[in-house]
Amino acid sequence: MIVGDSKPLEEILSMIEGRDKVLVLGCRGCVTVCNVGGEKEVGILASALRISRKKAGLPPTVEEMTLERQCDPEYVEELADVAEKYDAIVSIACGVGPQFVAERFRDVAVFPGINTTFIGGALEHGVWAERCQSCGNCLVHNFGGLCPIARCSKSLMNGPCGGSASGNCEISPEVPCVWDQIVQKMSAMGRLQELEQVWPNKNWLTARDGGPRKRVREDLKQ
């Protein structure tokens, strides 16, 4: 899923300064699962904004709404009748949400209430970690199912580098060296031999380096 982090309240307050009617807009997708942008978090953020703005003598009108998904025009359309009445819409969906809302409603000012951080998963309750950089050409099967692109700090395909120590990456003892894990895993599977080959240069055209990406599925298009 896409994982995000709430922006500090102060930052959101200053973004919407001078705007009277505010809508906090949540999403029931990934951000609900990672507890940062669902209905519950909409309620929490909205009341925090109300309290702070009231204290500061500002108009405390902050309304709440949560869409099924903000990355789908069908659901964004639900805002059609109400969007124009707000001076600010604070979207707490991933980075797609604010953009879809902004693109649909020309005259509405949209603000991101969270920082979209990575594609990852929950290691345990309250802990998430990055797993994929959406390079557009998955090759994890060659590396014991672990991704050297997203998880090695240098995206090395022929690791581990000389900084790998005691299972950790040279950038921090808090960051596991995925190449250490790749070697252990391939070794445990009796496939270490496969890592002897020199992995050829990656074609980054399918990644963000090739420009913004778009996918068209003719079979699904109407």
Binding site: C161, G162, G163, S164, G167, C177, S187, L195
Partner: peptide, 14 residues
């Protein structure tokens, strides 16, 4: 001297 030690010579060979 980096880890994993058992893979160091292999990496040199690569």
């Amino acid at each position: 001297f980096a880890d994993p030690f058992e893979f160091r010579v292999t990496r040199l060979a690569k």
